[in-house]
Simulated scan of single mutants.
Amino acid sequence: MFQIIGIVLLFALVFGSYVISGGKFEVILHALPHEMMAIGGAGVAAYLISNSTSVLKSTFGGLAKAFAGPKWKRADYKDLLSLLFQLTKTMKSKGVIALESHIEKPAESTIFQKYPKVLKDHFATDFICDTLRMMTMNLEDPHQIEDAMEKQLEKHHHEALGTPHALQNLADALPALGIVAAVLGVIKTMGSITEPPEILGGMIGGALVGTFLGVFLAYGLVGPLAARLKSIVDEEGAFYKIIQSVLVAHLHGNAAQISVEIGRGDIPSAAQPSFIEMEEALQAAPTEA
């Protein structure tokens, strides 16, 4: 919502100030199609050249996410902690054998099925199951498991940042592409140097539209969207960091509820449930028969 409001304000204030100061839209509208073809076309071409197939496929989804916001909400964090609580409690009270059926086929697990949104996230599910599987293999060095988890998190986060980095690179390139379009307009103007001043003035003004568009698109639209998407990816990364915190705390011998409380501390403040809320959620969580 705020992103849409920001875009409306951007266009209203920039072009409103232009009109109030006596500017005429005819010059911009006349040059806009050609300048946008040069700048936008060059930008899209550069984006295709510089990025991998996976980044290209995720671009539209990333732009949609920049408007929709992080997918993990307050209730999802409570669900994640409740899931981890039940898994670690099962492992501690019933042993490794009782846990194997849940981590080998999580889609069929009665514990995972209670939290469909977490189960639907393949990385979160695999991350939990792979880590618990390492624990069941008697790999009991907490630091070794923590290092393995850290590497997985870094890899996933690096890949998730591919789209915002690509958009930021595009934003950095747009002002220069605007200059390219403007230079072409100047070349065209110089080829018509014998025309009267009023015609030359219009041609020069049209050429400068290219510089304006490049800077406007870079710092008004693409750059802010890239920054917004990066902040969302960082916030969503905290969701997976909680998994690491809880499971490492469990590996250090803490009780399931203590491990969950350690993980609760890593939740972003805006979505963090209180201690009482989390305690009520754990009490309300269904228990295994």
Rank of each mutant, 00 (worst) to 15 (best):
E108K: 12
I199P: 04
D266R: 09
H156W: 08
M37Y: 07
I111Q: 05
V44I: 15
K151L: 12
L247K: 09
G23D: 05
F67L: 14
V96D: 03
P142A: 06
M203C: 00
E198R: 04
D147S: 10
I4Q: 01
I258R: 12
V222F: 03
P268K: 07
Y240S: 07
T53D: 09
H156Y: 12
C129E: 10
R264K: 11
S259H: 08
L139C: 06
E279V: 03
I179K: 08
D172S: 07
P273H: 08
V180P: 00
Y219Q: 04
F275W: 03
K230A: 01
E288C: 00
A238H: 11
E154R: 03
T53P: 03
A124C: 13
P142I: 04
Q257E: 14
S109Q: 05
I103F: 05
M278W: 07
L99D: 02
V209R: 02
T88H: 05
L139R: 15
G23S: 09
K57A: 10
E26G: 12
A148I: 03
T110Y: 08
H143S: 13
G206K: 06
L170D: 03
A281T: 03
A218R: 00
K92A: 14
P175H: 09
S101E: 14
P224K: 07
P70L: 06
A64T: 10
L200V: 10
S245D: 08
I199S: 12
L119F: 04
V44Y: 10
S274Y: 03
I267R: 06
Y240C: 10
V96Y: 05
A289P: 15
V180T: 13
D266H: 09
R228L: 05
V180H: 05
L119E: 07
S50D: 06
I145A: 04
Q168D: 13
K105P: 01
